[in-house]
Design a protein around this nucleic acid. Structure first.
Length: 372
DNA sequence: GTCCGAGGGTAATTGCAGTT
DNA sequence: AACTGCAATTACCCTCGGAC
């Protein structure tokens, strides 16, 4: 992610490695001007890191010391564990978000996937999850609600749309929200609903009950994300019936999805699902509390004593989660993974994703080799 | 604990105008 | 009607953390 904090943490890992192997005083790093820190790392890293240059806009590192500290400590730990055999080439790959593996950092031939507080393992599309578990050939764009709960999705949308029209009628036919100097507005002008960004009408819709299909036709991803979704977020997301209809939609989609999986079950992609790729790499997590480092085996090293126990769906409140339980046949331990089927850029905007997380009680040492 | 939005990068697809 | 080259838009992916 192109967030300053993530950049700083990932670069700090590299700085921690470099300072540890050259036995320099790590405290110097915190005192450096961000521009000098960036310049130093640019000279030591073998590929272009200009995507991380936003850290140079910081006046100093005073408010970011704990982030740097987490990264530096991880770098030091990586050196201390002696898992790297060649420090001459270092690559930062954190900005390359669509490559085929999760490696953010490569030191010599050793890859690292770096994490912070997040429990996310992969941000996958639903098509990828289904192909993994059923050997189907779904393609990008598979929409959990449109494909598995069409009628319920339509009702959820129509209630939301009509509620927005009702809300506007009792609020002088206008809604407006300004954040970071950007203004989103909705106006009703006679028979027209206008979606407006910074004073420009970017979508015009009919002032009547419309289907989700008509809604998509009359809008684009920007007006959906910045206008309608923002209205929902600011005015409507706690509406009980809205949540109920979403829950019903999730129930239907979850049940249909699990039916499909059980009819076509063939978990050809289990290793891939567990983030096991052609080459082994290290999964390294650094937080305020501790450091965790696991070796994730390559596909050829991967032991076949891992099996899928069950696939279920779960809807704690209204969001559909697919729960994949995996069992280690040797230890008898179960691991739980959850794919959150949800919109990522605003409600009713784009294709929902199937973001994959591991459970807080899931011990990764049942699938990976714990190094620290 | 759950929901889900913040933000931003790249790949893939679609749209379109002007040819063949 | 099929093609082509480019522009525009969407889809996907990466990740973290705030609100409740």
């Amino acid at each position: 992610m192109a967030d300053i904090k993530t950049h700083l943490r990932e670069l700090s890992v590299i700085a921690g490695i470099l300072y540890t192997i050259s036995e320099k005083n790590i405290n110097e790093l915190y005192q450096m001007h961000p521009k000098d820190f960036f310049k130093y790392l640019s000279s030591k890293i073998s590929n272009d890191i200009s995507n991380a240059s936003n850290i140079t806009y910081l006046p100093d590192f005073n408010n970011y010391k704990s982030i740097m500290c987490n990264g530096i400590n991880l770098g030091k730990k990586i050196v201390d564990l002696g898992i790297v055999d060649d420090y001459t080439k270092i690559y930062w790959l954190g900005s390359d978000s669509q490559k085929n593996d999760p490696v953010d950092l490569k030191v010599g031939n050793t890859g690292f996937s770096l994490k912070e507080e997040s429990y996310i393992l992969e941000n996958m599309g639903l098509y990828k999850y289904l192909n993994t578990m059923t050997n189907s050939k779904f393609e990008r764009g598979l929409h959990i609600f449109e494909n598995f709960a069409e009628a319920e999705y339509a009702k959820w949308f129509e209630y939301t749309w009509n509620s927005m029209l009702g809300w506007l009628k009792t609020n002088n036919n206008i809604w407006s929200l300004t954040k970071n100097d950007k203004t989103s507005e909705i106006k009703i002008v006679n028979s027209e609903v206008q979606f407006i960004i910074n004073g420009t009408v970017i979508s015009k819709l009919p002032n009547r009950n419309i289907s989700v299909k008509e809604y998509i036709e009359h809008t684009d991803s920007k007006s959906r994300e910045k206008v309608f979704s923002k209205w929902i977020n600011s005015k409507f997301k706690k509406d009980k019936k809205y949540i109920d209809l979403k829950n019903i939609c999730s129930q239907k989609a979850g049940s249909e999805l699990c039916n499909y999986i059980s009819r076509n079950y063939n978990p050809v992609g289990l290793a891939r699902f567990l983030q096991i790729y052609e080459n082994g790499y290290y999964y390294a997590k650094t937080t305020e509390k501790d450091i965790e480092i696991y070796y994730v085996p390559s596909i050829s090293e991967f032991e076949k004593d891992i099996e899928i126990d069950k696939i279920e769906y779960s809807i704690p409140k209204s969001q559909l989660n697919i729960i994949t339980t995996v069992k280690n046949k040797i230890t008898g331990n179960s691991l739980e993974f959850r794919n959150e089927c949800r919109f990522s850029h605003g409600q009713f905007n784009g294709t929902p994703e199937a973001k994959m997380y591991y459970g807080r009680n899931t011990d990764l040492s049942d699938i990976y080799e714990k190094k620290y």
